[in-house]
Design a protein around this nucleic acid. Structure first.
Lengths: 156, 156
DNA sequence: GTTTCTGCAAAGGTTTTGCAACAAA
DNA sequence: TTTGTTGCAAAACCTTTGCAGAAAC
């Protein structure tokens, strides 16, 4: 977690009269030690590697805070659980492509599409506040060769 | 529900060796009697207006079938429950804008954005299979006049 | 010292499932 | 008659919440 993020968070906490506590530090540390998407349960596991006493309830409560503060974003990967994405700090407008063959998630940014989304939104009489694109697609390499080089890197 | 859709479904059912039953007929009838998005619970309610004996379990099981057959699509409206959209038959590539002021959902289609999504997907080495865009935005009219004409039409 | 936060366990809400009776083919 | 389907109730699952003790300020 870079200093920019830590400052965002401090601003957020103090601005709301919230306290800097050990469990929060640990959970936040765990959340930003990775660039992988994770579920609440996975974050609990990661946080407990730093401090075994962290509770599930506090993880859920801290997740709510992090999403409100804009440090973390909920994303829909088409699975049953809510996933959280810690990469919006570095790539504020990225989107997700999900491989239907191996479930791997590819992040991509595209300024043209972002611009087009804004135009459409304004044309409809609205002011854009958040945008997300989810693309499901099959692997061309797998289709051609019967093997996919990123298969071993599948995200689950 | 138009004849095209009914045929799709028949093909799907017979193709899988599945049976045409009363509860399924009723649930499907209810699902396509509206263009509104609905939850499983709401569909149960609608189906029970046609036949009071329909069970919740059968609604869930039939929803799974309808999604698999492509007649219905799960959509993410940023709420806690899964919503289902019966409008993909008429507008196969539409997307959703959600008003952050009144929660109204506006559907929109745009061929440029669809094309761009396809390009991006291929550039990444994939073949597109399904795409969805969710835009959250605030109402300009409400911001300017303090009132929004569609407020009364809010979807919840 | 006051206020906020934590962990626990229980509750809440949605979705799935095992099973015996029932209906379609 | 065979196989698939239904409704029920229970279970499974993820997430939220009430509360008493602990920690931050």
């Amino acid at each position: 977690m870079d200093s920019q993020a830590r400052q965002n968070l401090d601003t957020f906490l103090t601005g709301k009269g919230l306290r800097r506590t050990k469990p929060r530090e640990v959970i936040i540390e765990a959340a930003f030690a990775t660039t992988e998407h994770f579920t609440a349960e996975e974050l609990l596991e990661m946080a407990r590697k730093l401090d075994r006493t962290v509770s599930r309830a506090t993880v859920y409560r801290t997740l709510t805070l992090l999403v409100e503060s804009g440090l973390l974003r909920e994303i829909d990967l088409g699975r049953d659980q809510t996933y959280y994405d810690p990469n919006f700090l570095q790539k504020p407008e990225h989107n997700h492509l999900i491989c239907t063959d191996c479930d791997k998630v590819v992040e991509f940014e595209d300024e043209h599409i972002a611009l087009l989304e804004d135009c459409i939104t304004r044309r409809l009489g609205f002011k854009p506040s958040s945008k997300s694109i989810q693309i499901k697609a099959s692997c061309e390499e797998l289709a051609r060769k019967g093997v996919c080089s990123s298969r071993r890197a599948a995200s689950h």
